[in-house]
Design a protein around this nucleic acid. Structure first.
Lengths: 230, 230
DNA sequence: CGCGAGCTTAAAGAGCTTGTAAAGACCGTG
DNA sequence: CACGGTCTTTACAAGCTCTTTAAGCTCGCG
């Protein structure tokens, strides 16, 4: 009776097996990888709900693996919990900044570790981040970094592109200006919320000739939304 | 200018101010409380995006405060990051099991702490509770912040939306005007009870074309109720 | 049948949110 | 160092929303 599927990535087989068996006791479906290369294959094949990954892997730094996985975008929904043996603080910051959901220092205190695993799993999946996303005549191709409207490409400024991409891949969802600043702007940016308005306006005026500006909807008192339905 | 609103709850004013000022530097809108009671009031009034809370408060254990807040259900979307001075592991487990999003031991390593705050904020809110709620042809989609009546969406003003959403998710229960003012308006709002009448009326007139206004029922001497049965 | 409490309805002004334009700051490039 | 494009800020106008007020109505009760 599998609760969630978890991939444990650690070069030390003793530690790995200990983690894996503890998770299996909780009823999870656990797979193991001992290197970054193997982990990547496993992620592609089994698409686990959570990856538990050590910072020090034999072939590649754990944070690199994390960045790779996050960058591809396809596995954005997967939670990642990083672990590390040495001086936790620096690794923790690096891991969290790279998109990890949580970080635990070694040696592992099992009860705390398991509590953190549960906390990771009970949260909703991260926002989607598809490489290619199409909705009602608009296509955002994140690989070619290009936007197609009715088949012909239009040019967007970087921020406009990220805004459209984020809203399009999370259709039918309202985001407040604050949320958009967190996800579309850089992590620690200090810009006012009205900035969002301006960028939405520019996106609308770019989509307007094609009649698609109505998909970029204002939700008074809440924020903005991309939706095909009025 | 504010990225996210954060409430810092800690009995030690030095620690509290240090945390608060670091968060302000990142551009957040920070409020402070030194006790659980004050924190509860602040949460009700300002509905922060994140609460940073110590486990040891002068009047109540931090975990109790956390449970209270989580139990109410209304603040489910708020993230909570707990801190604690003593033997982190036990407190960490207790906090995480009680619904905290993260836990950090003291003394705080600021860079790690801030990285964890950012990680909390970049994740989607906890919508564990009723994403979409349907009753007799009316659907309230809280993620898309949209109301569908017989499949087609109708547009509601922010307060109308909150009122309908509240009544719909608490079907067959009567609420007095005062209760509605607490739940749908802000806790310490200075608004006359007649205001509720007006908003109920507007909701009815919006639902009337579909014949659903009869679900919004007046209970003379008690208040209002949403119910499919008359 | 009449009274009063409580409810509905309408209208209007205050207050807030958003749209929009324009100008300045910033950044990488040639 | 100057240039072009992009991003951000600011300010104002317009429109929508919320609240108040007050008059008329309904219902239950004596």
């Amino acid at each position: 009776m599998a609760l969630a599927s978890i991939l444990v990535v650690d070069g030390d087989s003793d530690v790995r097996k200990q983690i894996a068996s503890s998770l299996r006791e909780l009823g999870h479906d656990v797979a193991e990888s001992e290197s970054a290369v193997a982990a990547l294959r496993a992620v592609e094949r089994t698409r686990p709900d959570l990856m538990v990954c050590d910072c020090a892997l034999p072939d590649l730094a754990g944070v690199e693996l994390l960045s790779d996985v996050r960058r591809s975008g396809e596995y954005r929904a997967m939670r990642v919990l990083m672990t590390s043996a040495n001086g936790r603080a620096e690794d923790a910051v690096a891991a969290l900044e790279s998109g990890a959901d949580d970080f635990v220092g070694k040696p592992l205190h099992m009860p705390e570790f398991l509590a953190r695993v549960k906390a990771c799993l009970r949260r909703p999946a991260n926002f989607a981040h598809a490489d290619v996303c199409t909705a009602g005549g608009i296509t955002v191709d994140d690989i070619g970094h290009r936007v197609l409207v009715d088949g012909s490409s239009i040019s967007l400024a970087p921020r406009e592109y990220r805004l459209l991409h984020f809203l399009l891949t999370n259709q039918d969802r309202v985001f407040s200006r604050k949320q958009l600043l967190v996800h579309v702007w850089d992590r620690d940016t200090l810009v006012g919320p009205r900035t969002v308005d301006v960028h939405v306006r520019r996106l609308r005026s770019l989509l307007e000739p094609h009649g698609y500006d109505r998909y970029l909807q204002t939700v008074r008192g809440s924020g903005y939304r991309f939706s095909l339905h009025d």
